[in-house]
């Protein structure tokens, strides 16, 4: 007897198809081309963030500070241009800032051995507070003339496809190549699978962990720039929103186990589609914001519970006090 078994990504994809079908049938306007474009545009930024989170989660970590990496460096670009600096200088400053941020995160986690959830929670608050206190004059950093031309990163179309979706695709390809084709990518999987074994076999596990967080911050910054370009401003209060839960939702629902070492870009795409459909459907149904959060929270909880059954924590390699 051959048992039929489905992998998580197949199940999630089936759920996505079902949800899509149900919404298409029952929700007027869901299947319209306009709505489809909005849906995809809305999830593009989420998808890019999902890629950043995926790199970290595959290496058995988590990065709660992604939203800060999204909001603060891109806000810095807008603010600097507003203050009269050139766009190039502003971008350079932002990238430098992001790399520093990633390095600090990575150092705290790899070398100071602070648990990743905890370290990124604190650094995220730190950077958001820094932006609020020292970098930005207003909560929403406005677009200025110096930014002219930059909005093409998030608006318009390339060969008929909205740019933000193209950006998501580009990011997907880059991350997929990194994870599947380079030695560093293999190291990340190895560390996520069993950090001690990885270290024993001679993988430079600490530098690789630092690399994960630098990459995650850079991708987060990229997502922020795409987002700023598409809405022509940078609402830095986005840090207080629940966006980070959506990102975790994308990764966990897509089938990248929180215990690390599994999954890839395909899982992020599937997770993004599912969440995008869900959010879009709830918006059309006019579910209030708090209600949406409630539903997302419950779905995330269900996903995490399922994840814990499908990818049980390895008690041998789980650290004591690994919270």
């Amino acid at each position: 007897m051959k048992r039929v078994r489905f992998s998580q990504q197949e199940i999630v994809f089936a759920v996505f198809a079902l949800l899509f079908a149900v919404f298409s049938i029952f929700l007027p306007g869901f299947l319209s081309p306009d709505n489809m474009l909005t849906l995809l545009q809305n999830v593009a930024v989420l998808g890019i963030l999902g890629l950043a989170m995926a790199i970290v989660v595959i290496g058995r970590g988590i990065d709660i500070s992604l939203i800060a990496a999204l909001a603060v460096p891109s806000g810095l670009v807008l603010q600097m241009v507003q203050n009269g600096h050139s766009l190039t200088a502003a971008l350079a400053a932002a990238v430098l800032f992001t790399i520093c941020f990633g390095l600090v995160n990575g150092w705290l986690i790899a070398y100071a051995e602070v648990p990743s959830l905890f370290a990124t929670l604190a650094t995220g608050i730190f950077v958001a507070g820094l932006g609020q206190a020292a970098l930005f004059q207003l909560d929403v950093v406005q677009w200025s003339d110096g930014m002219a031309g930059f909005e093409r990163l998030g608006q318009g179309t390339i060969f008929g496809v909205p740019t933000s979706i193209v950006m998501f695709a580009v990011a997907c390809v880059v991350v997929a190549l990194l994870l599947r084709q380079t030695r560093w990518g293999a190291y990340i999987y190895a560390i996520g699978d069993n950090p001690y074994a990885a270290r024993v076999t001679g993988i430079p596990s600490r530098p690789i962990v630092v690399l994960q967080y630098v990459l995650a911050s850079l991708i987060g910054c990229f997502a922020g720039l795409v987002m700023a370009a598409s809405v022509n401003s940078m609402p830095t209060r986005i840090f207080n929103s629940t966006l980070i839960y959506d990102v975790i939702l994308v990764v966990v629902l897509g089938g990248i186990g929180l215990s690390g070492g599994r999954g890839g870009v395909v899982n992020v795409v599937i997770g993004t589609l599912l969440i995008g459909t869900m959010l879009n459907g709830m918006t059309i149904l006019d579910v209030p914001y708090a209600g949406q959060n409630l539903i997302k929270g419950v779905v995330l909880l269900a996903a995490v519970i399922t994840d814990s059954f499908l990818n049980p924590r390895n008690e041998e390699t789980a650290q004591q006090g690994d919270i």
Partner: peptide, 15 residues
């Protein structure tokens, strides 16, 4: 259910 404390309470926080 032996879920991770951090992620679980993060979710219940939002709920």
């Amino acid at each position: 259910l032996r879920l991770r404390a951090f992620i679980t309470t993060l979710i219940t926080l939002i709920i």
